[in-house]
Design a protein around this nucleic acid. Sequence first.
DNA 1: ATGGCGGCACAATGCCGA
Length: 263
Amino acid sequence: MKIATWNVNSLKVRLPQVLQWLNDNPIDVLCLQETKMTDDKFPAAEIIAAGYHVVFTGQKTYNGVAIISRHPITDVVKNNPHFADEHQRLIAGTIAGMRIICAYIPNGQSLESDKYQYKLRWLDGLHHWLTLELLQHEKLALLGDYNIAPEDRDVHDPVAWEGQVLVSAPERAAFVKMQELKLIDAFRLFEQAEKLFSWWDYRQMGFRLNRGLRIDHILLTPALAAVCTGCVIDKIPRKWEQPSDHTPVIATLDLPVLPPLPA
DNA sequence: ATGGCGGCACAATGCCGA
């Protein structure tokens, strides 16, 4: 069982890459962020034709999330029931006995911005909802673009980034607060090389110079962490023509995989 | 100090992302 997250920065542009990547990789569940399209424009038919189930909630220009799955998706929730939000940033579903939550956490823009206050409120609302979801679901995974680099080792140049949005103390505290719910960063369950990131700026050869951040994460409850056998960042799609600025993160879970439903 | 790149829109410049 492999679950993954990828901020695609426009699914309209990146759909061929998503289908190519799913074809190249045995992925059971893929959470997408920044689809940037309303539901009437969502390419559900193409994804279903490729053999997947899909649920989504989107809006024009910004935000938008989706879950693509080889297995049926039930009990779908769009947005946080306990946080009024204009943005489409959250979708959850139950897949193969796991609660899968796909999140596009706000960027925050800068510490002086109203968007930063919104980010912190949004994280508070997420925490509240997570506490309730965790009461009901022993096997839960929160996958997405967190827009938080949890530690200095997740930042290419911690000195240059010190105190900036994505690494500021309040944002990191919100991440720690999720860890205090016993949600475990799958990536850090394993020994990893230095300087592994999931996002690189398009500008100034960010990717080639490996000036990146690790801001896309897969958090697991203890029941899933106990069966997690690996977590990797797949840099390959970042090397493709016209890439997203993010690249996928994949966690492998030693769980029985249901056979796919007949088409 | 600014913009760099890329995607998008009541587009032809301005916004947002991270």
